[in-house]
Design a protein around this nucleic acid. Structure first.
Lengths: 249, 249
DNA sequence: GCTTGACCTTGACGCAACGTCAACGTTTGT
DNA sequence: ACAAACGTTGACGTTGCGTCAAGGTCAAGC
């Protein structure tokens, strides 16, 4: 039979058959005088076998291997690996669907897709007006929010809740202003230490605990990544803050 | 921050970041005097968003679309489609794992991977010695076996069981020989009609039913595909056989 | 004999989402 | 001062075919 007939018989495209020839999965058959490939039933059998394995999810390379040491010895091994692989895929899809469901539930309430709704509501009430450092802080919070896992986001936003109360907002506003003032200050400026203490008094206990845990945990980077936008004095505030937190513990 | 730092911060490769630039997913940042890209925290936020969506399984094109009409209006729609897609994938993986489990159970008993074990056991007892037509028949059976669904295979093999009993094997042997004899005969040879009647008496009732159902069912091809290897007289045997089956019904 | 349409041939590019050189300039640490 | 590490652009490799491109072949109808 001709290639189109074989293709129709087994249910693949002629391109697929030629591809398999090229990959050595299906031997090239005899040619007719006109150059057409002349297939026999055997070829259909082989092709059908290849398709069966390929449709199970084996790569063409794996199919070739399996067909090569035809003993069925290696076959079971490969199939088991494949099954493990599929099991993993199932799990990962399951997790993705769960995250999706959470995301869908969220966006039903709040259309802001940039950050989680929990964080969005926090950001709405945090001080923002014109402070360079406030902008920096907001971006940092947004970043943490987007990189966190689904459950972590709510926990993180909950941690920030105390900072959204009117008193705390006013106090935060002042802190941002004092941070801005340190933009060009020297690291040993007396305002640095004072501000660190102020911040230590301002932050919720849970947040301090998390910051300590994060630095202890090898996630030391979260501070070291940012100094690009912090002046030396501002960076020093963070250093001192961390020292204070360690002592408090 | 430089590209490597951004990459480490968000947890992707620098290549990925440049790829996103190229795809317009992440705006190209300012350059330093030396040509290095200079990233800000905003970029990290955007990049993290892209990654979140991409890891959910959105294509980069879809991510771009979602980020474009940022209203979250289209987002839910896309997410729902994605969820449907994932559900379908879950199902297909589930089916594949079931087929795999069946295949593994089979191959534990029988290492012949060319055909199903049920068919293998049938083929082992069917007559085979030196007959051209017997070879043809075996190949056709193997082809049907490999192209059939998992459940169908056992049913098909079961249908052939009666033909593996000693008496039937001897009779089949004779039929094959008579088929071989018709290789160069004319279609109106008297042996043709006689052989068709013999075959009709030889085949199990269930198999006849299936053959009739297959031809009635638009699956008319199963005969028309093969004549390449059948002489005109041999093809005529099949035609007459089908006529007889129709009358019997 | 000629056209038309349905096949066949080989060859090559396209796709998704990056990985991985290559060839070269820059920065950083000792 | 020199090597290691990092940055730049550019281009090819991967997987499993789909999809032209540019023809040659064959059967049928005029």
């Amino acid at each position: 039979m001709k290639i189109g007939e074989l293709a129709a018989l087994v249910g693949v495209s002629t391109r697929t058959i030629r591809h398999y020839h090229h990959q050595g999965l299906l031997p090239e058959p005899e040619r007719r005088a006109n150059g057409y490939r002349e297939y026999l039933l055997r070829d259909a059998v082989i092709l059908a076998r290849v398709r069966r394995l390929a449709e199970l999810g084996l790569s063409l390379d794996e199919v070739r291997d399996v067909l090569a040491d035809d003993q069925g010895k290696d076959l079971r091994e490969v199939l088991r690996e494949l099954d493990d692989d599929l099991a993993r895929q199932q799990l990962s899809i399951q997790k993705r669907r769960e995250r999706l469901a959470a995301l869908l539930a969220e966006t039903d309430l709040d259309a802001d897709s940039a950050v989680s709704p929990a964080m969005a509501s926090v950001l709405r009430t945090l001080p923002a007006g014109g402070s360079t450092f406030a902008d920096f802080d907001r971006e940092m919070l947004a970043l943490v929010d987007t990189t966190a896992g689904p459950g972590e986001r709510e926990a993180f936003a909950a941690m920030l809740r105390p900072l959204t109360e009117p008193e705390a907002v006013a106090r935060g506003h002042a802190i941002y202003a004092r941070m801005d003032d340190l933009a060009d200050a020297a690291p040993d400026d007396p305002r640095v230490a004072a501000l660190a203490r102020e911040v230590a008094g301002h932050l919720p206990a849970e947040m301090k605990a998390m910051m300590l845990a994060a630095t202890a945990n090898g996630h030391d980077q979260w501070l070291d990544e940012m100094p690009l936008h912090l002046s030396p004095a501002q960076a020093k505030v963070f250093d001192l803050l961390m020292d204070i937190l360690q002592e408090e513990r």
